[in-house]
Amino acid sequence: MRVTIWGCRGSLATPGVETVRYGGNTSCVEVSTSDERTALVLDAGTGIRRLGLELVERGIEHVHLCLTHLHLDHLEGLRFFAPLWDERVTLDVWGPPSPVVTLRERIARSFSPPLFPIDLRRVPARVSFRDIPREPWAIDGVTLSAELVMHPGPTVGFRIEEGGATLAYLPDHEPALVGPIAERTRDWLSGGSIAADADVLLHDAQYFADEYDDRIGWGHSSVEDAVTYAHMVGARRLVLFHHEPDRGDSSLERLGAQARLLAAEGESEPVLAREGMVLELA
């Protein structure tokens, strides 16, 4: 499995000289599939724009876009996703269900005035909207599972398995909201079965501990909680994700250094997600 990070910034895109090393685009991750004409994409933050250009160049015919939730930083790039404007492309959008408003209706709001001039019905690609199922499902040899996780509004985390390799994707997640992480068994831990024993865990680490104290309930994690969570679920490698928009490269590196200090002896060192990072999972 090859995983490419196209955006790992949290909350708001932050282009600029201070974010050059780790990137300023919001959440978007590509996961390779066995069919080179099919793309599996996680979230549609601004990072999806550059990915879209590359997918068109590759001649992709089918895109599965899996949305963890519909906060703007995970959706705002969709309108500028080149395959959406290509009539040869089939786009399946998977997202968390709601009993009140369909996934299509919720996404269509961002394709309507005053937010956007072109109605979703007028995009050329063949687009369908699918509620994420409660049970695992398969896309071209890749098995996906999803569970609702701790974050304001309906939000899921994804577990993606292929050929014995497992990726867990929890970009927006605040497991400590319901008490100390270390005191929970995995079945009572938000995202516990999604992240269990994953080869790579992409996990929210937006704050330092002192910043988190003032932001409890905002739906994100401190670096301490991210490291503890990775330890509790037995993840083999933690990739710190959803970088705070006010954090420049040097501040991010201090956060990464702190994560390495917090990691238990014998565990692999946590690393900071950065745009363009490619993770090979075997």
Partner: peptide
């Protein structure tokens, strides 16, 4: 998965409540 499935988020929230 060998790990028991995560309890539904609503149960996790209810327990904390």
């Amino acid at each position: 998965m060998d790990t028991p499935r995560q309890k539904h988020l609503v149960l996790i929230l209810a327990r904390e409540f």
